[in-house]
Design a protein around this nucleic acid. Sequence first.
DNA 1: CACTGATGCGCG
DNA 2: AAAGCGCGCATCAGTG
Length: 540
Amino acid sequence: MFTLVERLPDETVRLTPLARDDGGILVPGDPTTVASRAFADTVRQRESEATRWVWDDTARWYPQLLDEGVLVERCVDLRLCHAILRASSSTVGSRIHEAPRGPYDGPQAAPVDRTALFVVEPESLPDPLAEFLLQREAVEASPHRGALELLLTAESTGALIAAEMRHRGIPWSVTRHDELLVEALGPRPATGERPTLMNGALSEVRAALNAPELNPDSPTELMRALQRAGLPVASTRQWELKRYEHPAIEPLLRYKKMARLLAANGWGWLDTWVVGGRFRPDYVPAAAATGRWGTSGGGALQLPKAIRGAVVADPDWTLVVADASQLEPRILTALARDPAMARAGAGDLYEGIVASGAVATRAEAKVAMLGAMYGATSGDGGRLMPRLTRAFPRAIAFVEEAARTGERGGVVSTLLGRSSPRPGTDVPPEMAVSVGADGRAWGRFTRNFVVQGTAAEWALCWMGALRRALLARYGSGLSAPHLVFFLHDEVVVHTPAAHAAEVAALVSDAATEAGRLLFGDAPVRFPVTVATVTSYSEAK
DNA sequence: CACTGATGCGCG
DNA sequence: AAAGCGCGCATCAGTG
């Protein structure tokens, strides 16, 4: 039922099967050892037995297997599961709960360059068998075992998906990207030079500010020049600059836009990150405390809308782009079991809030909901809070309770049992300070944690269900539809055009399945907007 | 020179 | 100086 693998100092791999005895206790069987080279074939053979692979860190094992054409259906990622179980309020009293930091608390392994002449596979983290048994002990003794099991499975499957998406890569048109850059910036200049359109904007700025030597990339220099020109700015941020009328402002904002595009996703980025028509970000599951993913290198989760046109399906393939509409407010609705908000969410949730009479416009509904989930105290969000509280008392009480717990220094948890860090532990020092100085900041964090974290769980279940459906329907061959991108509440599937309509239906079905997995038959819908497109920029 | 923190901005 | 959460990255500014 489980096969635990570990890489030994002599570079062989030890496989230990684990099964339950008559009393239901998990017992390790006799280990076998294979040469590192033969490992992929061993996994290929045993996949038919539907075992669950147990390993220290998916990023250390799976890329190599994928390179050798082996797809794994299920796994346990000990590092990711450790982080959940150690902090979870659902494991209080177990040995793993609040254990001191150890080797399983480290960061995800960095990707290895497999094109290198010598590829050295790192040794496993120490004693994975003991770690696994410690984890099982905590899960099986938990009063919330079912939820925890689902969370650990979803988290581990997410790690598989992260490696698979990196392996396949996002289909990227270098030609199209270059065209977009030329359109926005002018032809590619020599390295270190500014493109022509940027130089044009810069000349206008310098003339308008009467500062012929101005370096626009230096905030201090820029701020002084603006002040000399009579603009009492306190910073050089766009939102502040926008408030002033001055001939320098428009070209300056235009310059800043271009500078950002060039620095973040210009030709240098293209050279570094797109190889063989594919962009392969290093996804990092649970990079955020809430369980949200991050990426490392390439900024994949911040792909500006301006260059999404470069994401282009292969010939005769298309992209099925889907995003979960108003995910976080719907998650809050389900968590709080708020019947009024569930009614409002029958169609477009924000229109539903308007129809309930709580606010006047869709824009107000959106700002008010964001304010409720983030803890707005002033501005439009804060102003609308009382009206929202009157219309949806249960939903608002739910986030208020999470906020008060945080303000007291307490721990909150997601639906499935991921718990917030305690103030002062495992958090950046400046956050720890702000808790002492101002508990309200921590309250805003815990308020948002329960919603954002449960939304992340929903998204993991969505992707996991979709992956399973795609594998069952199309298999794992090179011409099968496959996930290529994930962005918090949005997925992109790259598929042969002929399957697009069917894939779109599977994506929607998977969203419904995720809702049922988390919330049973609660009357909350999780609609997804699906678009079948050639290029990512055509979606939405 | 290398490193660190602040600034600014992209995404959800 | 963004009201209000979560991130990553490039660049500048200041320090050792």
